[in-house]
Nucleic acid binder design. Structure first.
Length: 303
DNA sequence: TACACGTGGCT
DNA sequence: TAGCCAAGTGT
């Protein structure tokens, strides 16, 4: 079936997009910590957890602290989960800290303390999804697997499909597309994976793409089509944070992190006036395991 | 599939 | 300045 889409994919492969991006990345990129030679797989895993929906600039200092304190999975597994939540500080989405702690326990118990390199084994770890599993396999172990994040999705949408935005995720199709563009040898494939992410983050950005600096501008289907406005299904809108349950949860958890002792319910009550919403947020934190009740007080989880 | 889930910087 | 956006995952 020679669909228009199949033709687009073939054209992209013929243009050598994967090879071009790999060469562009190899010629120069930001010296991010997890790209350093010899950076441990555990460090890559921790960085990928922290980078889930969190900008690079906010991750870098926190990552250094974590790896100094917990240089290997067994070290993190040896402390209570609440310590992970506390050290997570204000990176956001604190259940990532809980998942990372649980992952460290699983790695210690099931994988002899070594971060697995098999995709299926990685996917079995709590908090590790399709993106993180492939990122660890590709970047920590040099395995030739397609890595697709929001940046890669945007580059693929524009360069290959000729549309301005990636739209709703179609994981299987996008993985297959990235796979088809990956250079054959593993080292170059890794450069292509990292390069596509770097390209999407620094050049082919969501709001203001800088096509003058793009290594694949000549092969870009979106550019060739005259940058048509996006007409596909709208991406789901993010709901306002102010006044949301998320804000209440964040405020409560911030108080728990700051206290070595359980925080009295009376103090928690001062954090949010609306009692119904406050209790809902508190119940959510307890259900998620981010907090535990101690008599008439609340604390970070100790086990 | 759609939605919940933190936080802060940028335009 | 209000909304957009950020190396996603779990349900």
């Amino acid at each position: 079936m020679a669909s228009a889409y199949a033709e687009q994919v073939q054209r992209a492969a013929d243009a050598g997009i994967g090879e071009s991006v790999a060469a562009w990345f190899a010629a120069g990129h930001r010296p991010l910590p997890w790209r350093a030679t010899g950076f441990p797989a555990w460090g890559v895993l921790v960085s990928e957890f922290m980078l889930q929906q969190t900008p690079v600039a906010r991750v870098i200092p926190r990552l250094a602290e974590w790896l100094e304190r917990w240089p290997e999975p067994a070290a993190l597994a040896a402390v209570p989960p609440g310590e992970a939540v506390r050290a997570w500080d204000r990176l956001g989405y604190p259940r990532r800290a809980l998942n990372l702690h649980a992952a460290s326990v699983a790695i210690t118990e099931r994988h002899a303390g070594v971060v697995p390199e098999d995709i299926e084994a990685l996917l079995a770890l709590p908090g590790v999804g399709p993106y993180t599993a492939r990122a660890v396999a590709a970047f920590a172990y040099g395995i030739r697997v397609p890595v697709v994040d929001v940046n890669v999705r945007r580059v693929l949408a524009r360069a290959v499909r000729g549309v301005g935005e990636p739209g709703p995720a179609r994981t299987t199709e996008e993985l297959a597309l990235m796979e088809s563009l990956l250079p054959a040898d593993a080292p170059t494939a890794r450069l292509a994976n990292a390069g596509m992410m770097e390209l999407g983050q620094t050049v082919c950005t969501a709001r203001t793409p800088d096509c003058a600096r793009c290594p694949i501008a000549a092969a870009c289907a979106w550019r060739a089509a005259g940058y048509p406005a996006y007409t596909g299904p709208a991406a789901p809108r993010q709901k306002p944070y102010a006044g949301s349950d998320r804000e209440v949860r964040g405020r409560i958890l911030r108080e728990l992190r700051a206290s070595e002792l359980p925080v009295p319910a009376s103090r928690v009550a001062e954090l949010w006036a609306d009692a119904v919403q406050r209790e809902r947020a508190l119940a959510g934190l307890l259900a998620d395991g981010l907090a535990v009740a101690v008599d008439d007080a609340y604390a970070l989880p100790t086990a």
